[in-house]
Amino acid sequence: MRDSRGAEFDDFVRTRSVALLRVAFLLTGDRHAAEDLLQEVLEQVYVRWRRVQTSPEAYARRALVNRSINRWRWRARRPEQALGDHDGVARDHADTVAVRELVVGALRALPARQRATVVLRYLEDLPVADVAAAMGCSEGAVKSHASRGLARLRESLAESSLVTPTTETGSTR
């Protein structure tokens, strides 16, 4: 018996799932919810592979954004994972955990579409046109969401001593 999706689908999941998981995590703010969301979207990609195989990542991104807004449905699947406690966080990861909590907290304060715009634009580095495609809105709307979202995000993050501007230190990564 053969599977018509073949190795291409497997390659797509293997190579792109981490990037998509990062997007899902910042959209949901919860590790388990992000994993559930990603799995659901990848299953959707699997079923529609023949139609979407020319641009599966764009399709997956759009599905992530759409589904992240309808959160209740998949949130009930299992208890949420604490932001700072997944993967058995060790003490030397404390700073990472704190940054993650801070970022997720700041993103959660944004309206869903602003949050999605900021994540796609600044985590994924997507051009405005691609963000508009993923969001299903105009490029003007993306610019507007990005501008407002970024302003609020800067405001939230700038209050924390955990955030060191790259312009002063060279790199924060």
């Binding site: 970022v103 970024l150 993050l157 501007p165 312009t167 924060t172």
Partner: peptide, 23 residues
């Protein structure tokens, strides 16, 4: 303290860099 776009990119990556796909 003000943050430019690079700072925002940097901190979004810091917050997600150690995420790995679930087994």
């Amino acid at each position: 303290m003000t943050m430019n776009d690079s700072d925002v990119r940097g901190i979004l990556h810091r917050a997600t860099d150690d995420l790995v796909s679930p087994p």
